[in-house]
């Protein structure tokens, strides 16, 4: 068949195919190079002491335990607040709302939130939570800022999985005399739990990787806090990403920075993998 095509066509096809292969190889090489380089520079600096101590200028110790704890706290506080809000929004959009205009306005608002850059969230969080609500630069203010930021993620994934719940389930439940809320609680939400979990995982990924929004809301302190300190206003603390930035940019401790980068990279891998597993489970279920 190829004999019948003119030479110029064949050349064009060849060139385009080669370009495509180049771009595909380029991206794989880029990812492989990034992973390799970060792990190569970072892993040798990770030790148990590094993970389990707090930094002290006096003793000359650098440890990232406070940053790990702060990251965990911020993830937990944010999720506890954003989960009901996000799932509630998705349920409202998918189950309750009858006014089409209102739905499109809410969806537009959600898209807008998804598009706002994190540095603006940082400023808005500082204005709203740190100053206006006078919570002070604290983990709590940082978490509240991230609540706004991660809301669209939770709404979108929950809404997508609510859409996959067959209407016959709802009709069956309503026909048996169940009220709307009862139906949602016992039929709709349990069948879309996987989507909600996926949303959570994606939100965790976004929170763990966030830095610009936290710089001016959660602060840069490196003290070990208890979970109770974390929810009281005024206790500042830096997460892993903010710590990485401070070590690299302000203190020039690149070994420490790469160690944190390696940890973040591994976390990203784990988060992506678990999101995929949950999505797979979801697929099996709906088939």
């Amino acid at each position: 068949m190829h004999e019948k095509i003119s030479l110029s066509r064949r050349v064009k096809i060849k060139v385009i195919n080669i370009l495509m292969y180049i771009s595909f190889v380029l991206i794989l090489a880029l990812v492989a190079g990034l992973i390799g380089y970060i792990l190569y520079r970072g892993l040798p600096n990770i030790s148990w002491k590094f993970l389990s101590s707090k930094p002290s200028l006096l003793k000359g110790v650098i440890g990232i335990l406070p940053n790990i704890l702060n990251t965990v706290y911020i993830v937990l506080i944010t999720l506890v607040i954003v989960l009901p809000l996000g799932v509630g929004t998705a349920v409202y959009l998918n189950e309750y709302a009858t006014n089409r205009k209102l739905v499109s306005v809410i969806e537009f608002a959600s898209e807008t939130l998804a598009g706002i850059p994190s540095i603006i969230y940082g400023l808005a969080g500082m204005l709203i939570f740190v100053q206006f609500c006078s919570i002070g630069t604290s983990l709590l203010a940082g978490s509240l800022t991230l609540v706004i930021m991660t809301l669209p993620t939770i709404v979108r994934t929950t809404q997508e999985s609510l859409k996959t719940v067959p209407d016959s389930y709802r009709e069956g439940s309503l026909a048996l005399g169940s009220g709307k809320w009862h139906m949602i609680r016992t039929v709709v939400l349990p069948s879309s739990i996987d989507g909600i979990v996926t949303g959570c995982i994606l939100a965790i990924g976004r929170i763990v990787g966030e830095s610009a929004a936290l710089l001016f809301t959660a602060g840069m302190a490196n003290n070990i806090l208890s979970i109770k300190d974390a929810v009281t206003p005024g206790n500042a603390g830096s997460t892993l990403t903010v710590a990485l930035y401070m070590y690299a940019k302000e203190r020039g401790e690149f070994g420490v920075a790469f160690a944190i980068a390696a940890i973040l990279l591994i976390l990203t891998l784990v988060i992506n993998l678990s999101a995929k597993l949950v999505a797979k489970k979801l697929k099996v279920k709906t088939d």
């Binding site: 991206i27 794989l28 880029l30 990812v31 990034l34 992973i35 380089y37 970060i38 990924g205 763990v208 990787g209 966030e210 830095s211 610009a212 990403t241 903010v242 990485l244 930035y245 690299a248 690149f254 920075a257 790469f258 980068a261 973040l264 990279l265 990203t268 891998l269 988060i271 992506n272 995929k276």
Partner: peptide
Amino acid sequence: RAAVELLAGIPSVVYGLV
């Protein structure tokens, strides 16, 4: 796809550091 997802997930400070 896995590679692209990883690229999307890497925190921006890590890109900055590299």
